[in-house]
Design a protein around this nucleic acid. Sequence first.
DNA 1: ACTTCAAATGCAACAATGTTGCAATTAGAT
DNA 2: ATCTAATTGCAACATTGTTGCATTTGAAGT
Lengths: 148, 148
Amino acid sequence: MPDKTPSSTSTPISPAERIRATGARATPARIRVLELLSSAPVPLSHHDVELALGDATLDRVTLYRVLDWLVASGLAVKRADERRVWRFTLAGGGQHHSHVHFRCDACGRVYCLDAPAPIAPVMPEGFTLARLEFDLSGRCADCNRSAR
Amino acid sequence: MPDKTPSSTSTPISPAERIRATGARATPARIRVLELLSSAPVPLSHHDVELALGDATLDRVTLYRVLDWLVASGLAVKRADERRVWRFTLAGGGQHHSHVHFRCDACGRVYCLDAPAPIAPVMPEGFTLARLEFDLSGRCADCNRSAR
DNA sequence: ACTTCAAATGCAACAATGTTGCAATTAGAT
DNA sequence: ATCTAATTGCAACATTGTTGCATTTGAAGT
Ligand SMILES: [Mn+2]
Ligand SMILES: [Mn+2]
Ligand SMILES: [Zn+2]
Ligand SMILES: [Zn+2]
């Protein structure tokens, strides 16, 4: 049964459409950046996006504004990585969360452990839990070895 | 029974002594900053220290170097706060670790839950676990209420 | 198609935070 | 008191982020 939804085609919503759906203008800058976030396998920093845009470069300030607008409009999510760099991901896809990470205090590398995420504690009344992250730190094998 | 430790007085080790114990020079800059960290009830940022130094101001770069040296020498610990500002604490006091935090995505406030810290997973061979942190995020009661 | 105008952009200027190179100073050993 | 490597101060630079304002443009209406 293909496409029975009233007043919509079966085509997945395009970046431009998702932008217009918020009531704002679908500009090339927003479309291009949203496309990048959509296809990126990992969260992108401001700098990553700058590089990925290549010759079709946006003004630096415009890019800051586009990224923040995407977040404000609910289309993207902004998170600081372990090096305190802001990274942006497409909103909605809850699948990448609940990781268990180990950060080496010596070399800074981050390891993604495949331990099961711990069970969420009971939240205080009225709180909504969206994401849960378990971060461990210490020294990695490499650094322990080279330290003697 | 006061003070029976061999070759030491009962006086707590002074900042200058702790610095010399590392083999480095006890300079006014290092002593002053270490004193500040010792008496601070909360982790201090570079800027906090600048302000606290008042008229006895150090050069900005020297302060960066002193703080980083304190960390490298093991006398202090450097951690990013939830606003991505580096904050420094006296090392050793292990009591503040293994907290469970909740950060509200809407208002940014951080709540310190009193849930028990989860059990550490088995570490890969050669890894040393130093600290473990369980971070939850979502919306707090205040923000959920005002959102409707 | 043409007009209209708030929304979005580009650009210049600024601010905050952190880094590097190097000459001058100084802690602490002899 | 002298000596010297460790530390400091300063100038210059880099990166990341913000603000004000003149110009351009998406898209709604004609
Ligand atoms: Mn860049
Ligand atoms: Mn400052
Ligand atoms: Zn390591
Ligand atoms: Zn809140």
